[in-house]
């Protein structure tokens, strides 16, 4: 992955980890740009989205990408479970928080949510909806882990389960996964999602 060296933020202390400010920003533009390849980043930087989710970039070349996002006044989140080269453990989260200076992490694992809290970065926990029989136990795990935000995937399941989720959790919800059309975005927002996450650049505008 070709990366230009960009001067990092003056100090990791300056990284914005305010969930309140993120919620307000999503109130204005309710979209997080999902970046699967570094080539997709310039369009996200030029867009109005307040947050960028990195899914697959190699961990040890991530710095310049994250800092480019932050230089635009956006928040950068890194998916710990999917990022290449990084341990899916506390040391991995600590590296992202202290060495890279990410605003937050994304993970499916409750243990890494606790690690994010210890490192004082925003924790987005994924609720993966592939099995209706597993939903009750997944909801109790989330209730116990208390992430800052829950990201619910895939998008087409969200309307089917939103009432069940809300009865159990009061967390802000981001809806992602196969959200490609404006109608899908609008449906999620109408049902109470804080924002959508999508790799479809047409929805970043």
């Amino acid at each position: 992955m070709a990366t230009r060296t960009i001067v990092p933020p003056a100090h990791v202390r300056r990284v914005d980890v305010s969930v309140t400010r993120l919620n307000e920003a999503f109130g204005r533009v309710p979209v997080a740009a999902v970046i699967r390849r570094a080539e997709d980043l310039p369009r996200a930087l030029a867009s109005q989205v307040p947050a960028v989710f990195f899914l697959r970039a190699p961990a040890f070349h991530l710095g310049p990408l994250v800092w480019a996002v932050q230089a635009r006044g956006k928040l950068a989140f890194v998916h710990v479970d999917l990022i290449a080269g990084l341990g899916k453990d506390r040391a991995g989260v600590t590296f992202l928080a202290r060495e890279i200076g990410v605003n937050g992490i994304i993970t499916s694992h409750s243990g890494l949510v606790a690690a994010a809290r210890a490192e004082r970065v925003i924790a987005v926990q994924r609720l993966l909806l592939y099995d209706d029989l597993g939903l009750p136990s997944a909801l109790s795990a989330l209730d116990h882990a208390r992430p800052d935000i829950v990201e619910i995937l895939p998008g087409m399941i969200f309307p089917l389960v939103v009432d069940q989720i809300r009865a159990r959790l009061s967390l802000p919800m981001i809806v992602g996964g196969f959200v490609r059309e404006p109608a899908q975005r609008d449906a999620a927002l109408e049902r109470g999602a804080l924002a959508i996450s999508t790799s479809s650049a047409e929805l970043w505008r």
């Binding site: 699967r36 592939y130 196969f178 790799s199």
Partner: peptide, 8 residues
């Protein structure tokens, strides 16, 4: 196969 998002 999990059909959760295009990456997965």
């Amino acid at each position: 196969i999990h059909a959760l998002d295009s990456t997965g």
